[in-house]
Amino acid sequence: MSGGALSAEAAARGMPRASVGRLRSNADLIFAAIGLVALMIGVLTLTALIVDLAVRGLPRLDLQFLTSFPSRRPAQAGILSAWVGTALVMLVTAVVTIPLGIAAAIYLEEYAPKNRLTAVIEVNVSNLAGVPSIIYGLLALGLFVYLLGLGRSILTAGLTLALLVLPIIIVATREALRAVPPTVREAAYALGATRWRVIADHLLPYSSGGIATGVIIALSRAIGETAPLITIGALTFIAFLPAPPVRPEFPFVSFQWLFDPFTVLPIQMFNWVSRPGTDFLPNAAAAGLVLILMTIAMNLTAIYIRIRVRRKVKW
């Protein structure tokens, strides 16, 4: 920034010319310091937690741990049913919530008429993002388990978490769509493109980085949820896997696993932490590490998508 621009701005704010430089650089410095402290509080806390978890859990984390079912003996216990359960529930959640969330956001942002009803819907979507997760659990218990008769199953859990994180995806997608410059839309419309063509060929590709971020924040929240899953009746001890998705006879795929009982990593951890004695604590820490690794893996996928999109999009 040139000195001329600086002083012009200062004059516009009615400040005396001489003190502007010092005041500015002081404020700059102070704010940078506050920002750094704020960042460090978050980063250091997270680091401390992960290091603590790693120190306790890493010695326990081996192939046996990943391929064994829970047991009353800490050294034989494992998280096979828990991590498979978590992975399958997340799969259902992702398949349901991503298309629904993105579609809802596109409608609200690009199609919905700007009237009072839309405004009410918008406020509600934002508010839903702040509703405690246990409320979603109660809703799911009434709706999915009893009314629709889906049982205390992987499908119910996936749908529950999908509802829970849907608002997050909608809000993030709308932000991403809004970040696409209006000139892009106008140029496309000027060339005679239909609304859908503009969305499919321009808006979605350009905003997919932001959408991916929203999706990952949403799924990262879902993967750690315990309360709504306990409400719908996730089990604590389960020493078998859901039915396999493929089978030898026609039609070769099976969706029986959607209706099978399940457990997930956070519930397994909670169970180990709340046992008498300290024997199971290393197991809980190791399960926590696996959960964090699964979250990081999802994050890396999002970062990869974002980098690829950035490389392609040039305005």
């Binding site: 996730a234 089990l235 078998f240």
Partner: peptide, 8 residues
Amino acid sequence: VRVTVGIS
């Protein structure tokens, strides 16, 4: 046989 145990 499959056995599940919950804590309610």
